[in-house]
């Protein structure tokens, strides 16, 4: 569940962000507690707290004193913007590097993407 070589608190923060992005954790809903995250991922609670604090600093989560952590209003939109900005760096650059290594031009890659998206429909758009 937790992979090697990358800070665990970043992975915890990302797992919470992913839940907000896919809607399983709604805005204004209560986020899992530090101890719940620690027990679920089998990690040190201090590490889980560090991940949660990162999201509080980013404004994704809000602390309500005495109750717990809640997803901030507008958090999903902000995360979408952030992920879209980083999309090219994270996914396109490695894709194009591999394409170059095996002799595919950017146009070839674009064609492949087009073929794929027409042959495999987006699961969300099918009724």
């Amino acid at each position: 569940m937790v992979e090697e070589g990358r800070a665990i608190f970043l992975q915890i923060a990302q797992s919470v962000e992913d839940a907000i992005l896919d809607g399983s954790l709604a805005e204004e809903a209560q986020a899992p507690s530090t101890n719940e995250l620690a027990a679920f991922h089998r990690i040190n609670p201090a590490t889980a707290a560090k991940g949660i604090n990162l999201l509080v600093d980013k404004g994704v989560l809000q602390k309500r004193r005495g109750i717990g952590m809640f997803v901030a209003t507008g958090a999903r939109e902000a995360l979408l913007t952030e992920r879209r900005t980083g999309f090219a760096d994270r996914f396109l650059d490695p894709l194009l590097a591999e394409a170059r290594a095996i002799g595919l031009s950017p146009a070839d890659v674009a064609d492949l993407i087009h073929q794929r998206t027409t042959s495999t429909p987006d699961p969300r758009s099918t009724p």
Partner: peptide, 9 residues
């Protein structure tokens, strides 16, 4: 431990 993680590649 967190700063050691990713300290070697």
């Amino acid at each position: 431990a967190e700063s050691l993680r990713g300290e070697a590649t």
